[in-house]
């Protein structure tokens, strides 16, 4: 390298780079804090199932709501298939903490519970799991958010909190 060669970095640009790195650190910190301190969760490997038999063997052979602690703790086993969720109506009491276990017996689907942070890709062979607590009464639709064939648009269910 000759003496003449150097990175010409304008003073403005130096400040800009500092600002960019600063912003980067702020974003990364915000995400880290939100993810780890406030307990926001994304799905993480839970279990593998065989999509060919999942509808006839195991918990999704009998999908639905399980009461673990009355009024407090629930599990919802939901089977996605073209083009419906089984079950497509769920009712829980106010204050219930519900853990969703969703899988598919055919193609990919989506599971988005409106007005909550529940949003999962449903992949055949995998179990998507997230937990949410319902503090207010109301009705939430859970809709299929991944293209799953001709009648994808009609695929949804309702969860009632009362």
């Amino acid at each position: 390298m000759t003496d003449k060669q150097s990175m010409h970095i304008d003073p403005y640009e130096k400040n800009w780079i500092r600002l960019s790195i600063g912003l980067l650190v702020v974003f990364a910190t915000a995400v880290t804090v939100a993810g780890f301190a406030f307990g926001f969760q994304v799905p993480t490997p839970e279990d593998r199932v065989d999509p060919r038999t999942v509808a006839t063997e195991g918990p999704w052979a009998d999908p639905g709501l399980r009461e673990l602690v009355p009024g407090k703790k629930y599990e919802a086993y939901i089977l996605a298939q073209t083009w419906a969720f089984l079950p497509n109506e769920i009712t829980v009491p106010v204050g219930a903490e519900v853990t969703f276990y969703v899988t598919s017996k055919d193609v990919q689907h989506g599971f988005k519970l409106q007005d909550t942070n529940i949003n999962m890709q449903i992949v055949p062979g995998q179990v998507s799991k997230l937990t949410v607590t319902f503090d207010e009464p109301g009705v939430h639709n859970f809709i299929c958010t991944e293209y799953c064939g001709a009648a994808h648009a009609i695929m949804f269910g309702t969860l009632t909190v009362e």
Partner: peptide
């Protein structure tokens, strides 16, 4: 794939941080 069931949260997080690093050449 943040909402994919088959990818561990730690790897999603690592890729999130790497994604932010592309912010740098974009700002440049």
């Amino acid at each position: 794939q943040y909402v994919d069931p088959g990818v561990p949260a730690g790897w999603k997080f690592l890729h999130a941080v790497l994604t932010y690093s592309v912010f740098l050449p974009s700002m440049l």
